[in-house]
């Protein structure tokens, strides 16, 4: 997808733009950029269109006997924001539970103003949330770390839901091959997470009872969300946790890992051979790791039974 200059027409909105003509493809593009700038501009308080969009509305939109140009354009401005906010609410119930409704709404509007959709699919709307929160932690104070862990698992959830399954590698495929020669890739739908909070359990709790469904090609979008199920932080202490977010038979699962498992899988994901990936275990456990070959064998057997490995 191309990166591009902002479509916001803030400059043109200060002075009344000349009524555009559409007698060429270029002029069609200019009119569309002008209108999209107004439609994608953040809403004013009480979800009204910003008054600064009035000159654009008057320049391009005809009034009728019931609505002014401003009011007609405002329908689209509101629809745009209601639709993408609705999608963002659906995709991040955990973050919403962490922050509460008001903070979440402020964050959502700031994020979507900064990163409008650059994909034909709303599925990708939250692709930059993690980076946004890292760059601007002020939106999640005082729960920055928890919020960051939560959006990571929520994005991992989206990935696990519909990323590709490549042909799997079975244990038998590895027999007789030397570990120093074999590289395995993880399925594209798997995300390995190192987190400080049990966000897997927290997300499950946040989602319980959340049975809202998104419309398809309808304009029936309105900001009438149920209140977020707030997560109780009482007694919640940071601890290092490892999780593989994956998919089995079309359902998304959170598989807790121990540190050694996480490191082996991460090394494999980064392209290491099996031998190199497992070397971490020897390094960590040293002579205490007498039973490690049997243990590692058991892990690989389990992972292959899940279908986690594919050819790089």
């Amino acid at each position: 997808m191309r990166r591009s200059k902002p479509t916001s027409s803030s400059a043109s909105s200060r002075t009344k733009p000349r009524p555009p003509k559409v007698a060429s493809a270029r002029q069609l593009g200019e009119l569309q950029a002008l209108m999209a700038g107004a439609i994608m501009r953040p809403l004013a308080p009480r979800n009204r269109m910003q008054k600064s969009s009035a000159p654009v509305a008057e320049a391009i939109i005809k009034p009728n006997d019931r609505l002014t140009s401003f009011e007609r354009l405002e329908i689209y401005n509101r629809q745009y924001w209601f639709r993408i906010l609705d999608c963002f609410y659906d995709d991040y119930p955990g973050l919403r539970a962490v922050l509460g409704d008001r903070k979440f709404d402020r964050l959502a509007r700031a994020y979507l103003a900064r990163y409008p959709s650059e994909s034909f699919s709303l599925r990708n709307l939250g692709r930059r949330v993690e980076g946004f929160l890292r760059a601007e932690p002020k939106w999640t104070v005082p729960h920055q770390r928890l919020a960051l862990d939560m959006v990571r698992i929520e994005w991992a959830n989206i990935v696990a839901f519909d990323e590709a399954t490549k042909p799997t590698i079975h244990v038998d495929d590895l027999l007789g091959r030397h570990p120093s020669k074999v590289r395995l890739a993880l399925q594209p739908y798997i995300t390995l997470l190192e987190v400080r909070y049990p966000v897997d359990d927290l997300l499950i709790a946040a989602k319980q009872g959340d049975d809202r469904l998104r419309g398809e090609a309808s304009n029936a979008v309105a900001l009438q969300h149920k209140r977020a199920r707030r997560i109780s932080f009482r007694g919640l202490k940071p601890q290092r946790l490892y999780i593989a977010v994956h998919r089995m038979e079309c359902s998304v699962y959170y598989k807790p890992l121990i540190r050694e498992q996480f490191e082996i899988l991460r090394a494999l994901q980064r392209g290491a051979t099996i031998e190199k990936a497992c070397a971490v275990l020897l390094k960590r456990r040293g002579s205490a790791a007498k039973d490690w070959p049997a243990q590692v064998q058991h892990w690989f057997k389990e992972w292959t039974s899940f279908g986690w490995f594919c050819h790089p």
């Binding site: 191309r2 479509t7 559409v22 999209a36 409008p116």
Partner: peptide, 25 residues
């Protein structure tokens, strides 16, 4: 309809200006 500008998507079905040039495009 139209709905994207410079690779940014409104995810809406926006009406066309009914001109001959727009029809050609």
């Amino acid at each position: 309809c139209w709905g994207s500008v410079d690779g940014r998507y409104t995810h809406d079905l926006l009406p066309m200006p009914y001109t001959f040039a727009a029809a050609k495009v």
